[in-house]
Amino acid sequence: MNFTRFGRPAVIAVVAALALSSCAANEGAAPETDSASALTGTINAGGSSAQGAAQEAWIAAFQTSNPDLTINYDPSGSGAGREAFIAGGSDFAGSDSYLSDEELAGTFGSCAADTTAVDLPNYISPIAVIFNVEGVDELNVDSDTLAKIFAGTITTWNDPALVALNEGVTLPSTAITAVHRSDDSGTTKNFADYLGQTAPDVWTEKASDTFPFQTGEGAQGTSGVVDAVTNGVGTIGYADASRAGDLGVAKLKVGDEFVAYSAEAAAAVVDGSPLVEGREANDLAFKLNRTTTNPDEYPLVLVSYAIVCTEYADPAQAELVKAYVGYMTSAEGQAEAEASAGAAPMTTDLQDKVAAVLETIK
């Protein structure tokens, strides 16, 4: 995707403030805080648990440079995060799925009257299909087989469909326990969107934050899914790739090849995807191209968003949110997310586009 290049004064201001702080610290004295540039107050936010590791790193770095600022982020899940933001209980929401048309048609408690909210990408990451099967270190799956596992129609690991995809691998007769999110989850919506686009004859339910089938085992949050897969027998699940740890991770069939996830392959899919049609120009929600056959792209990817007001009821709070979201989506913030959470850095064009929207927020 080609975006028009924009200047980034909001991001430059944040980076400049960080640089000044660093220079002063290197001089050896404890400098007085410049009240004209220091950020003071509290930001309350929550939502996406996929963003959890990145948020921890972002908060630590940003609060170090702004010691009078407190940032609280609750990784309660994308659905809970959007609900809290809509109700006015937080300053922004982290969400692995963008605002629905129904949500956009409503009101937002932290926003000024008669204004709305927008989706700003801040975190791109592959979703890993994680598994724990004794004696199995590598696993290939295609979307049709994966859909049948989570829909509950493939129930054992030595099912002929899995055997055919894994030549030379001895798959046991162990029962499959497919672990899904029990809470409203943007990761679930992305997982379901991938299966709905690539295996529509099997995955017939519309993608949503709620897992659609009464099958398998439900677990709360990303950490709950990872724990259930880790501690179970014959388990498989889906989670942000940053949390895969030592679990087995399946390769997905893309075109004629089986592809392992990578930050680069996730970023490539996003770069080739259009924005959602019919929205305001400052809403940067992506319609991801899951049906790619290019093995350099990994289609099971999530774009996570910072959902913010176009105008805040409290202008002072707007400045805090703009500064923090500006940092997260800057080159420095994206490098921090890559180092701490394995995220795929947003392209410079996309960073510029987000910065241009942030300039307009009041």
Rank of each mutant, 00 (worst) to 15 (best):
S90Q: 13
S78F: 13
A57T: 03
F85H: 12
F85Q: 08
Q55L: 10
A80N: 13
A54V: 06
F85Y: 15
S76C: 10
R82H: 08
G77N: 13
D74E: 11
A84T: 14
N72W: 04
A60S: 06
F62M: 08
D74Q: 11
A60D: 04
Q63W: 02
N72A: 10
G79K: 13
A61F: 01
Y73V: 01
I71D: 05
A54N: 04
N66D: 06
P67L: 00
F92R: 09
G81T: 08
S65F: 09
A60T: 05
S90R: 04
L69V: 00
G77Q: 14
E56L: 09
I59A: 07
G88H: 15
Q63P: 08
I86W: 14
F85W: 14
I59E: 06
D74M: 09
A84I: 09
G79M: 13
S76I: 10
Q55H: 11
E56D: 07
E56S: 01
S90C: 04
P75Y: 07
R82E: 11
E83M: 09
G81H: 03
N66H: 06
Q63E: 14
A60W: 01
A61S: 01
Y73I: 05
D74R: 12
F85K: 12
A61I: 04
L69N: 00
W58T: 06
A61G: 09
G79C: 10
G89C: 01
D91F: 05
E56F: 03
F92C: 09
N66A: 00
A57L: 00
Q63A: 13
S90Y: 03
N66I: 02
A54I: 01
N72T: 14
Q63V: 04
S76V: 09
L69I: 07
A87T: 13
P75C: 00
P75M: 02
R82N: 12
E56V: 06
D91A: 07
A60H: 07
A54Q: 02
D74T: 12
A84P: 08
S65L: 05
Q63F: 07
G89Y: 07
G81W: 07
D68E: 11
E56W: 01
W58K: 07
G77M: 11
N72E: 11
R82A: 06
N66L: 08
P75E: 05
I71C: 00
A60N: 05
A80Q: 13
L69H: 00
I71A: 03
S78T: 14
A87K: 15
I71T: 00
T64V: 03
Y73K: 07
L69C: 02
F62A: 03
E83D: 14
I71W: 04
Q63N: 02
G88W: 13
T70N: 00
G77W: 13
A54E: 04
G77D: 12
A87D: 15
F92L: 03
S76Q: 10
S76K: 12
A61E: 11
D74L: 08
S76Y: 05
S78P: 13
N66F: 04
A54H: 09
P75L: 10
G81L: 05
I86A: 15
